[in-house]
């Protein structure tokens, strides 16, 4: 990156450290923090959407629908999430290719043959000839979808509970005013539900942050991947040989997560205060008294 760094083996001390920390691989490492933030930025709304749908379906008056919603919520809760992560990434990939195979391949043969999953080249997602760019984007997308499915179930659980927590009297009053079922749902239930859902959703956000190291298990080059790669001891084959520094890199990650969750915690507390204004809850009551 800098001229002094042209021959890393001839420099030492602070210059060495500066060059080392700005090597192209380290720059990739710094970028990977953005990958994690990007995953959170995409996954959080996606999971919220999945969860909202899940909760609405679970509350449905049509029995099969309601059962479907509850099974979704319950399944994810009973099974360790890491198993879903390991499972979905392969299952989604093969599932997509199997469906595509039914349309674009001649005959659409059963692809699970012995120890190989084989579809015709045209059914590959993405196509083998696509650039690395698309392969990476596809891997990232699989991770996002998997996170959204798993966290969607947890969000659904929280929202389901929150919808049930809205005082019955509020809904009855709305019905008495002649609102239709859809109107009550849209105008009364959903706006009021958020204050009850917020503590649970805040908790989930913290859990989501702490789940991001699993990106590494899904094959995405995230901060854990780079910490392990950069921290491992390096022989003279590398430009910057050094001993085993993984402990220090992982301590760095620990600090990153502690700071991140701490900031989130403060943010959530503020948001809760704001949303509690004028609500018929203990929090809202406390705010009212403080102002009076």
């Amino acid at each position: 990156m800098f001229e002094v760094c042209a021959d890393p083996k001839a420099i030492e001390g602070l210059t060495w450290a500066a060059c080392y920390l700005t090597s192209a691989k380290h720059v990739d490492f710094y970028w990977s923090f953005l990958t994690v933030l990007l995953l959170l930025a995409i996954t959080a709304p996606a999971a919220l959407g999945m969860g909202f749908m899940g909760a609405t379906v679970a509350r449905s008056h049509v029995l099969p629908l309601s059962l479907l919603g509850r099974t979704y919520i319950w399944m994810v809760r009973g099974v360790p999430d890491i198993i879903f992560f390991l499972f979905f990434v392969i299952a989604l990939d093969q599932g997509l290719e199997y469906i595509k195979n039914l349309f674009v391949c001649d005959g659409g043969a059963w692809p699970w043959q012995g120890l190989e999953f084989r579809v015709c080249p045209e059914a590959k997602v993405p196509l083998a000839k696509s650039s690395a760019f698309w392969h990476q984007a596809y891997g990232f997308m699989l991770a996002v979808v998997t996170f959204a499915i798993v966290f969607g179930a947890f969000v659904a659980n929280v929202i389901y509970g929150a919808m049930n927590a809205v005082p019955r009297a509020q809904l009855e009053t709305a019905e008495a005013y002649g609102m239709s079922r859809a109107q009550v749902f849209r105008r009364i239930l959903v706006p009021q539900m958020w204050v009850y859902a917020l503590p649970g959703l805040g908790n989930l956000w913290m859990i989501l942050i702490k789940a991001t190291p699993l990106l590494f298990l899904l094959g995405v080059k995230d901060i854990v991947y780079y910490a392990r790669e950069l921290g491992g001891s390096k022989t003279q084959a590398y430009e910057y040989p050094h001993g085993d520094w993984r402990l220090w890199y992982f301590l760095g990650l620990l600090v990153f997560y502690l700071v991140f969750t701490r900031i989130s915690e403060i943010g959530i507390t503020r948001l809760t205060r704001k949303l509690s204004h004028g609500q018929a809850t203990a929090g809202g009551e406390a705010l009212r008294k403080a102002a009076a």
Partner: peptide, 30 residues
């Protein structure tokens, strides 16, 4: 990673624009 960021922003578009005969070599790198 930089690529990844752009990739997700463009994820809606088809990959066909980049199509060329590419053989992908997989290695461990460690």
């Amino acid at each position: 990673m930089k690529k990844l960021l752009i990739a997700t922003a463009l994820a809606g578009f088809s990959g066909a624009a980049f199509a060329q005969d590419v053989v992908r070599l997989g290695t461990e790198g460690a």
